[in-house]
């Protein structure tokens, strides 16, 4: 607190903290921009935000520091992650630029802008720092001080931000809302449907009898064809089923046929059977 009050320079501890954490913050920011996967970007950003929260605290903004962690890192970033998951966590961006000259222009602009800002700050006469000691203690603490300002001087802005939040909530609802075109099924109807439908037991799991057990790989039916039923509906609709298609099966078949020919097996039946390695039932029948 005394160090803050002194104010033209900071304590050695704070300087140490600044250089260490500042480097971390810059690295986090750069990784946010440069990492391919959105999840990684989000995590880097979260790190940067936590560093910033520490800096807030160091600057005497105790309330904001906590709010930064709770609201930003805790809520907003989680919202981001949520949407990233919704959109597809595995989807990696290609960092190849498609717009001609966009990258250089962007870098030039950002660099120029940053230099301008830094030059502006350097030119400004900011030699004295008053420190927040007096302000924070005037009403008994940082939170009380803020509350005093919010509910007196900034009360209208505060109320208006309330209205803004409501509006944003409504807006988000409207944007993501989909009109229901049919009546929602009751539980009874759903259970009856299930009993009458094809699948009374749970749907088959993905990857069964196949070489993979990932969620996005369809399980294979006894005749070797992949069954889309085994893949989760969301992935199916998103088109994120991994390729174990007839094409790759056909490739395998052709490979086995070629090797069979080389080994001199002329039994067409055997070749045909051999060409279908993914149907173990048939193979076992032939073995009998």
């Amino acid at each position: 607190m005394n160090a803050l009050a002194a104010a033209t320079t900071t304590s050695t501890g704070e300087a140490f903290q600044f250089w260490i954490l500042g480097t971390v913050a810059v690295i986090g920011a750069l990784s946010t921009v440069l990492l391919k996967r959105a999840v990684h970007s989000a995590l880097s950003l979260a790190g940067t935000m936590i560093v910033l929260a520490v800096f807030y605290l160091a600057n005497g903004a105790y309330f904001l520091g906590i709010v930064q962690i709770v609201v930003y890192t805790g809520a907003i970033m989680m919202l981001f992650l949520f949407v990233v998951m919704l959109v597809g966590v595995t989807a990696a961006d290609s960092l190849k630029e498609t717009l001609k000259g966009q990258r250089w222009l962007a870098l030039g602009c950002s660099l120029g802008f940053g230099i301008l800002l830094i030059a502006g700050i350097g030119n400004a006469s900011l030699s004295t720092f008053n420190g927040l000691g007096a302000a924070n203690t005037a009403h008994g603490g940082n939170v009380e001080g803020l509350a005093n300002l919010i509910f007196t001087k900034y009360v209208f802005a505060f109320e208006i931000t309330g209205a803004l939040l409501i509006t944003a909530t409504v807006g988000a609802m409207v944007l993501t809302h989909r009109e229901r075109t049919e009546r929602a099924k009751t539980q009874r109807e759903m259970s009856e449907e299930r009993v009458r439908g094809k699948h009374l037991p749970p749907l088959p799991a993905p990857g069964v009898y196949a070489r993979h057990n990932a969620v996005d790989i369809p399980g294979l039916l006894p005749d070797g064809t992949p069954s889309e039923l085994t893949v989760m509906q969301t992935l199916r609709q998103r088109g994120q089923i991994r390729d174990v298609s007839r094409q790759s099966l056909a490739d395998l078949k052709a490979l086995e046929q070629r090797s069979g020919e080389r080994l001199g097996r002329e039994d067409a039946d055997a070749v045909a059977r051999g060409a279908d390695p993914a149907s173990p039932a048939e193979n076992s029948e032939a073995a009998k």
Binding site: A7, T9, T10, G22, V26, V33, C109, F113
Partner: peptide, 23 residues
């Protein structure tokens, strides 16, 4: 350390963020 360094850091982060938006 002069607390003005916080401002430089802010400017740097801002520029990095802006380039990210553009790229």
């Amino acid at each position: 350390m002069n607390p003005v360094n916080y401002l430089y850091l802010a400017a740097l982060l801002f520029a990095i963020g802006a380039s990210g938006v553009l790229i």
